[in-house]
Deep mutational scan, measured.
Amino acid sequence: MTEYKLVVVGAGGVGKSALTIQLIQNHFVDEYDPTIEDSYRKQVVIDGETCLLDILDTAGQEEYSAMRDQYMRTGEGFLCVFAINNTKSFEDIHHYREQIKRVKDSEDVPMVLVGNKCDLPSRTVDTKQAQDLARSYGIPFIETSAKTRQGVDDAFYTLVREIRKHKEKMSKDGKKKKKKSKTKCVIM
């Protein structure tokens, strides 16, 4: 069974824990209790493949930012979460993405942009803004509501699919490099 290491990042209060708990335990946590770091595991079937999701729910508070490099190193894919009623959390996505790329030393890291709290009427981040940002990053965008469960499975499952595509691409690139290195030079 394939294991996928997913990391949920975003500013404090955007609903990272609520999304994760909704996926794992099928219930909505409405009281806000700032996370330092929590880890969850769940076995699911995605596109006919049974897999184990190892999900790291991270601290959004700035005082825990020193811990970010460590979990970013171990993560295979990242859910970059903002709240649709919090423009600052949307603007912060850029910083999370840049930090992930720096730590992973790669421009090509599996990510999904997630606009959470889409059940709320007080939207300050337009869907088109988020779609445009995701398009500019070359990553999928999904709106979710941890409260109603809308888009929750889709967000995590899409990230797994992005990781699969990335692994497939990397193995193809690896095979191309191996083929090239088999060419021999004969000096007579």
Rank of each mutant, 00 (worst) to 15 (best):
A134S: 14
L120G: 13
L6C: 13
V81Y: 07
E76L: 06
K178L: 06
Y32D: 01
P110D: 02
E98S: 04
L53K: 03
K42S: 07
A83Q: 13
K182L: 05
G48M: 10
S106I: 13
D33N: 01
P121G: 11
G48E: 10
Y40R: 00
K128F: 06
N86T: 06
L23R: 12
V29E: 03
G115P: 08
R123D: 13
L53Y: 12
V44M: 15
A66V: 07
I21M: 04
C51A: 11
S89E: 11
T20N: 02
F78E: 02
L113Y: 12
K178W: 13
Y96V: 05
P110L: 03
R68A: 03
K104A: 13
V7D: 01
V44G: 10
L133G: 09
I139S: 06
L52E: 15
G75Q: 04
P140T: 03
H27P: 01
A83D: 15
E3C: 10
D69F: 10
E63C: 04
D57V: 00
K104I: 12
R97I: 15
I46K: 05
V112M: 09
P121S: 08
M188N: 12
G75I: 02
E62A: 04
D47S: 11
E3I: 08
Q43C: 06
S39F: 02
G15V: 03
Y40F: 00
P34V: 01
G10Q: 08
R149G: 03
T124W: 09
V112A: 09
V45F: 07
R68P: 01
K88T: 11
M72K: 15
Q70L: 04
G60S: 01
V7Y: 04
I55K: 00
G115H: 12
I139D: 06
G115N: 06
I21H: 02
V44R: 13
Y157P: 10
A83R: 07
L23W: 10
R164K: 03
K165F: 08
Y40N: 00
V45D: 11
L6I: 12
R68M: 02
D33Y: 01
Y137C: 10
S136L: 11
P140L: 03
A130G: 06
Q61V: 04
E49N: 11
D47P: 06
R97Q: 07
D54T: 13
S106E: 13
C51M: 14
S181F: 08
Q22G: 06
L52P: 14
I142L: 07
V45K: 10
S39V: 01
R73S: 08
A18H: 02
G15N: 07
D105Y: 13
E62H: 03
E62Q: 06
K165Y: 13
D54M: 14
I21G: 02
Q129R: 08
K167L: 06
C80R: 01
V81T: 10
V186N: 11
E63K: 02
R135L: 12
N116A: 13
D57L: 00
V114T: 04
V114Y: 00
Q131K: 10
Q25G: 15
L19S: 14
L19A: 14
R123Q: 12
A130E: 12
S122W: 07
K167P: 05
A59R: 00
K101V: 14
E76N: 07
K128H: 07
E76M: 11
A11Q: 10
L79P: 02
K172Y: 09
E98V: 02
K172N: 10
C118W: 06
V125G: 11
R149S: 06
A130M: 12
K184E: 06
E76V: 12
E3M: 13
V112S: 02
I55F: 14
A83M: 10
V114N: 02
G75K: 02
R68N: 02
G48T: 11
D69M: 06
G75M: 02
L113M: 14
A18N: 15
M67S: 03
Y32G: 00
G15S: 14
G77S: 13
D132S: 06
A146S: 03
D132M: 06
G60A: 00
H95S: 07
P34H: 00
R123I: 07
L113H: 01
Y32N: 01
K172L: 04
I46M: 12
E62D: 09
K184R: 03
L52N: 13
K104H: 13
H95V: 11
Q25M: 15
K117N: 14
Q70T: 15
G15W: 05
R73C: 09
K178Y: 06
P110V: 03
K182W: 05
Y157M: 05
Q61C: 10
D57N: 00
T87S: 07
G75E: 03
K104C: 14
Q25D: 15
M67R: 15
Y32L: 01
K167W: 12
A155Q: 10
L120Y: 06
E98M: 08
T124A: 09
T74F: 04
F141I: 04
L19K: 11
Y4V: 14
D69C: 05
K16R: 01
K147M: 06
D105I: 04
H95Y: 04
Y96R: 14
D38S: 01
T35W: 00
K16C: 03
T50Y: 13
N26S: 14
E31C: 04
F78H: 05
D33T: 00
K167I: 04
D153C: 05
K180R: 10
M170V: 09
L133H: 15
M111D: 06
R41S: 04
T35Q: 00
V44F: 10
I84Q: 13
